[in-house]
Simulated scan of single mutants.
Amino acid sequence: MPKKRPIATLLAGALCLATAACAESSTEPSNGEASAPAAESGYPVTIENCGRTETFAKAPSRVVVMNGASVAEVSTLLALGLGDRIVSNQQTYGMSEVPGRAQAIKSLPTGDIELNDAYDIPREAMLGLRPDLVLSTTSYGFDGKNGFTTRDQLRDVKANSYVSPQGCDQDTSRMTVADSYTLLRDMGKVFNVGDRAEKLIADSEKRIAEVSAKVQDKKNPKVMVVFANMAMGGNDFSSVVAKGIYNDILTQAGGANAFESAAKTSFADLSKEKVAATDVDALVVISYNAPDPTAYAKKLLKEFPQWPAAKNNTYTVLSDSIYLGPSNHLAVEKVARMLHPDAF
């Protein structure tokens, strides 16, 4: 995990879903069966992205996915059956709510790149990959001051670029599940697989609506969402979620963020005393490269026995489904079942 770039900025950017049935399968779609050539008659395609116009004369075939401490972009491409277009992927997680997803990501080419201090692709290495599309979670990945290839430099070598929703100003505190759908639709348009994107979106919306209907009349428990063994600030609890897509997922699952008012940004930097003084009805631990997130959850419940969550042993562990990406419905389902088991 990169340490030299502020981890809160990285994580704030932060999943086999080609059909409803595929979401339950044990493997990702194979590149051969899912990535039929796009009909070139559908081009040129133009999208607006962070104040720029990106025009695609054909479907990209040499895609580079930058790190950004996210798996949103690579997971979206895999969900759309576009894994064979990737020549270098720097996003990795090691686990997923989607069976087969983590292994599918691990199997993608990296391009044998020597990464920079931010654990991402420096300028010369990027140009050497000869990409025709580069994806970045936030605009940070195209900041020339940090040794990255700028979007103008990519355009000079006939490569398009794309920053994911809410990543333009690197403030993802306003992110919602709708932004995951925007990412899917944009990639569907770019690669001329819009029908696949719409099927994924429709399935996700249906599943979230079904869950929300079951819990809409329930009391909303207060939930603490925290990254396991992660330090982002100076206090004991500096990786507590305050705002962002996490809150949208909690709301649709019939819950509420216990620390939403603790910060105006995506993460709150809290003292142990503040955490101890807050009634936490349920705990969600997000695993980002944590070796044993369940052990971390149990440790917190033992540390704060006064919490209703500790008294009732109410917790769950999530990985990629709670981030921007194509699998948010899985997070909604899992959190709702934790908060309102009697509704299922």
Rank of each mutant, 00 (worst) to 15 (best):
K145G: 09
Q153H: 06
G147V: 08
A69S: 14
L108F: 00
A69E: 04
A118G: 09
L78C: 10
G94H: 04
T149Y: 11
G144E: 14
S96Q: 06
T110W: 05
K106N: 02
G83W: 04
M66A: 07
R151W: 08
V64F: 10
S96E: 02
R130H: 15
R151Q: 09
S70G: 04
D120W: 12
M126S: 06
D152G: 10
E114N: 15
G141T: 05
M66P: 03
A104G: 13
M66C: 05
G81M: 15
V64R: 05
N116F: 13
L108N: 01
L154K: 13
Y140A: 09
L80D: 01
Q91F: 02
Y119S: 09
K106M: 02
V87W: 15
P99N: 12
L78D: 00
P99V: 04
S107V: 01
L115W: 08
A125S: 13
Y93K: 01
A102C: 04
A104L: 11
N67I: 00
E97T: 01
I105N: 01
D84I: 08
G147M: 12
I113C: 11
G144C: 10
V64L: 09
I113R: 15
Y93H: 02
L77F: 03
Y93I: 00
M95C: 03
T137G: 01
L80F: 04
G144L: 14
V65N: 00
R130N: 14
G111A: 13
L133R: 12
L135R: 01
M66L: 15
K145N: 12
G111F: 13
D112V: 11
L80P: 03
E124M: 11
R155C: 07
G100A: 06
D117S: 14
R130S: 14
L135A: 03
V98S: 02
G111T: 13
L135V: 03
N89M: 04
D132L: 08
E97F: 08
V64T: 03
E114D: 12
Q91P: 06
R155Y: 10
D132C: 12
E114S: 14
S75T: 01
L135Y: 01
P99T: 11
A69G: 11
P109I: 14
G111D: 13
L115Q: 13
I113A: 15
E73P: 00
T76L: 05
M95F: 03
R130I: 12
P131C: 14
A102N: 03
E114V: 13
L80C: 06
V71L: 00
N89S: 11
L82H: 07
A104I: 04
S75D: 02
N146G: 14
S96R: 03
P109L: 13
A69P: 02
L129W: 04
R151C: 03
L78G: 04
P131D: 12
V74Y: 00
N116K: 11
T150N: 08
R123Y: 11
R123M: 11
S136R: 04
P131G: 10
Y93P: 02
V64W: 10
V134A: 07
G83Q: 10
V63D: 05
S107P: 05
T149C: 10
T138H: 09
D143F: 10
I86N: 01
L135C: 00
P122C: 11
G111Y: 14
P122L: 14
Q91A: 03
D117L: 14
V71K: 02
T137F: 00
I86R: 05
K145P: 07
M126K: 05
I113Y: 11
T150I: 11
D112L: 15
